[in-house]
Write a protein that binds this DNA or RNA. Structure first.
Length: 461
RNA sequence: UCCCCGCUAGCUCAGUUGGUUAGAGCACCGGACUGUUAAUCCGGGUGUCGUUGGUUCGAGUCCAACGCGGGGAGCCA
């Protein structure tokens, strides 16, 4: 099904520029509202380029008479305007249609003083735009980024909804730490000594334990919402607030989880590339050359799949010298993951069956007594974007593992109940939404993939 | 949290072994010209050299602390 998101007018009063550029006919009366991207003036003819965020394209407005000096001074970069006129075929090569108008048909709704405006009609570094995060949504790169971010989230919902998954709104305020470790932001009322909820509460680090309750009642479910980690991570791939997608499927083993993850990554990638084809031209040219073809070729073929043990053997046979030690029991470090995804498999690869010590308590224990039915999906450029597993559905094994790890079984009474009443094999995975966006677009810093990033020492806006 | 690098005009940067009045491109301002497309041409420098302290006759330049930013690592998604 081809999605026609631009078919409907933005409101009863006006149509989006994206809609008009596709549907206006020469000779029709024109009316647009938006902001000026660039303007050029000469003695006899002037050009205004107007955008409204609905399209990477601008509308060229042609004034065949010179505007007054006063009006001209108010038609600089990012002045808000309303233009009425007539759609005509454009003699210029860059656009099919343009608007012919008189200066009187241009109304300045909110002027911008170009000499004071922090964003200029030139290339500006992403680092500098981060310092004016309230203004960067109006730049070409961030216009494309946030249109793609929107499209990707829509395609994620669409993927699950078309397959009968229920979107479960798991709580943002959580009573325990899902992983039994990791750093949490606590939720409390300033000046109040007693916990508001009668117990310590935290911002969620994962909705998985809660969504498992719903998987044991609705079979196929997913979460899609914000997640919080108080880790003092200062990298281009970590933020303290990010969005995560966590599907959970019942009557399923690790193979089913992997099949779902592969189908999911392939479908949402291709659908987003198609929905935002024009925006991806920008990423392909200016952000990461060749990124579209790289993503396509990654998802065109079946994803590779190896066990953790095989991965360690591959690393040993590679003849490479790595900074970190390799061998069974050693962690797969970033350098190892990059070797596997970028050099050896040259595409996405599932690594399965990790040592139980490296993974969370709820993952299903394999018969070897050493490993668990876990998987990470590693992709070129980024490393891990998915972490998932089959869950331990056997009450005794799960309880034993909780005790082994020094955790308090009573804290997990409700979670253990799921294994007591109608327990079935089940599993799921977590996908970092921003990391997926970065993989598709080539954006290199997570701070540029989220509207207002929260990172250690930084929460302006 | 650890390692490395950076901070000079609105932006991106240059600035010599420490030396007198601080440099470029673009942006911006003024003018010219043009159915233009990040237009083009001519003219104009708009500055608390991140902050504080130190060394020195003299600091954008050397030293220290702090702040901010970037890259990498760990942790992870």
């Amino acid at each position: 099904m081809r999605l026609e998101l631009s078919m409907s007018p933005t409101s009863a009063r006006r149509s989006s520029i994206d809609h008009l550029l596709q549907h206006a006919e020469p000779g029709q009366p024109a009316r647009i509202e938006g902001w000026i991207k660039t303007s050029r003036f000469s003695k006899n003819v002037s050009f205004l380029h107007v955008f409204d965020g609905s399209s990477p394209r601008t509308v060229q407005v042609v004034l065949s008479e010179p505007p007054s000096e006063d009006l001209k001074g108010r038609l600089g970069i990012h002045s808000a305007v309303r233009v009425q006129g007539t759609w005509v075929a454009s003699p210029g090569g860059e656009q099919a249609l343009e608007i012919q108008a008189t200066p009187e048909q241009v109304q300045v709704i909110g002027p911008t003083d170009p000499s004071a405006y922090p964003i200029q009609k030139k290339r500006t570094s992403l680092e500098h735009l981060r310092t004016i995060a309230h203004l960067r949504p109006r730049t070409n790169t961030f216009q494309a980024t946030f249109r793609v971010r929107n499209a990707l989230s829509w395609q994620i919902h669409r993927f699950f909804q078309e397959r009968g998954f229920l979107w479960i709104h798991t709580p943002i305020i959580a009573a325990s730490d899902t992983e039994g470790a990791g750093e949490l932001f606590s939720v409390e009322v300033p000046g109040q000594s007693e916990p508001f909820f009668g117990r310590p509460t935290y911002l969620t680090v994962s909705g998985q334990l809660q969504v498992e309750c719903f998987a044991q009642a609705f079979s196929n479910v997913y979460t899609f919402g914000p997640t919080f980690r108080a880790e003092n991570s200062n990298t281009a791939r970590h933020a303290n607030e990010f969005w995560m997608i966590e599907p959970e499927i019942a009557f399923a083993d690790l193979d089913d989880v992997i099949a779902l993850a592969e189908d999911f990554v392939r479908q949402i990638s291709l659908a987003t590339l198609e929905q935002c084809a024009q925006d991806f031209e920008l990423f392909d040219r200016f952000v990461e050359k060749g990124v579209v073809q790289a993503v396509r070729s990654s998802v065109d073929k079946p994803f590779a799949r190896i066990t953790y043990r095989e991965a360690q053997e591959l690393l040993q046979q590679s003849g490479r010298s790595f900074e970190y030690p390799i061998g069974f029991g050693q962690a797969l470090q970033a350098e190892h993951e990059r070797f596997l995804a970028e050099e050896y498999f040259k595409g996405p690869v599932f690594v399965t069956d990790y040592p139980k010590e490296q993974k969370a308590f709820y993952m299903r224990q394999n018969d070897d007594g050493l490993t668990v039915a876990a998987t990470d999906l590693l992709v070129p450029r980024l490393g891990e974007i998915i972490g998932g597993s089959q869950r331990e559905e056997r009450l005794d094994q799960l309880k034993r593992r909780i005790v082994e790890l020094g955790m308090e079984p009573d804290d997990y009474a409700w979670y253990l109940d799921l294994r007591r009443f109608g327990s079935v094999p089940h599993g799921g995975f977590g996908l970092g939404f921003e990391r997926m966006l970065m993989w598709l677009t080539g954006i290199k810093n997570i701070r540029d993939a989220i509207p207002f990033p929260r990172t250690p020492g930084s929460a302006a806006y």
